[in-house]
């Protein structure tokens, strides 16, 4: 399998504090790759580094064979990376359909002046955009809600809608920053369903998550961070039995007990 997202020696310092320290990982195409670690391990910082929200102190990020570190966020997004946010970032005063359609703004190429005067082209483009958005809403099971105002939706729906918005740009890779945080069990099950279903249809996911149920169920590969450093990586099974990981999550005294349950 070819590599899709590759971090090499990625380091980020905030005024002397090292948030991410010499991080390497190599995400394969068509996988769900998770990044886990205790609070403050530098997971969200890593996502922000990949998406160009923060500049790297040193190192590089490669996406689909091209270096993307140093590019502005919108160019990284255009190159085929979508993202959801830990604290949801939605357009609360707009309808669900409009929210999704904003995600496809760049897909519609008509310029401002032509859009005003060329009725036919603008209408066709708008129709295409709407149909695509509706198709995606169907995919994430939110078609019935399309005309509702986003702010009136339950939290879980709002979170899933972010995945839909990201899909509008035809990304190859979607970064999910703690998608399950704050969801109740049934919403969580729905989220897992959306992720696995769309994954089968060809989306790769880079997942940051605290909820180990979600991570261990759907990940193909896991990278574990602690204090900005990579301490382990491997398949879910390998990671669950890794001493360093257990130490980071549970403390030293649990290491001697070799047998560890799924709850890391």
């Amino acid at each position: 399998m070819s590599s899709i997202l590759k971090a090499s020696n990625v380091t980020k310092k905030f005024k002397g504090l090292v948030a991410v320290d010499d991080l390497d990982f190599d995400m394969k195409d068509n996988t769900i790759h998770s990044l886990i670690g205790p609070n403050g391990a530098g997971k969200t910082t890593t996502v922000n580094l990949i998406t160009g929200v923060h500049d790297l102190t040193s190192g590089s990020v490669e996406f689909d064979g091209k270096i993307i570190s140093g590019l502005p966020t919108y160019k990284i997004a255009r190159s085929g990376i979508g993202r959801t946010f830990q604290n949801i970032k939605i357009f609360s005063s707009m309808t669900v359909l409009e929210n999704i359609m904003v995600g496809g703004h760049e897909q519609a190429k008509l310029g401002l002046v032509r859009g005003v005067f060329d009725f036919k082209a603008s209408k066709a483009e708008e129709k295409k955009l709407r149909e695509k958005a509706e198709e995606i809403l169907n995919k994430i099971g939110m078609y019935e809600l399309k005309d509702k105002l986003m702010k009136n939706l339950p939290y879980g729906r709002q979170k899933i809608s972010e995945i839909g918005r990201a899909m509008m740009n035809d990304p190859i890779l979607i970064l999910l920053d703690e998608p399950a945080a704050g969801l109740n069990p049934s919403e969580r099950a729905e989220l897992i369903q959306v992720i696995t279903k769309t994954h089968r249809e060809g989306f790769s996911y880079f997942l940051i998550e605290h909820n180990m149920d979600v991570v261990m169920n759907i990940s193909d590969y896991i990278t574990v961070l602690n204090f900005g450093r990579k301490i382990a990586e491997g398949t879910p099974k390998e990671v669950q039995n890794n001493e360093e990981v257990i130490k980071a999550y549970l403390g030293n005294k649990y290491v001697t007990k070799k047998k560890v349950s799924g709850e890391v």
Binding site: K89, E98, N169
Partner: peptide, 18 residues
């Protein structure tokens, strides 16, 4: 639509490639 979305949340707009 994109002007309006900018009022609600600029970061999300940027992440949409705008």
């Amino acid at each position: 639509r994109v002007f309006k979305s900018l009022r609600d949340n600029a970061e999300a707009v940027e992440m949409s490639g705008v």
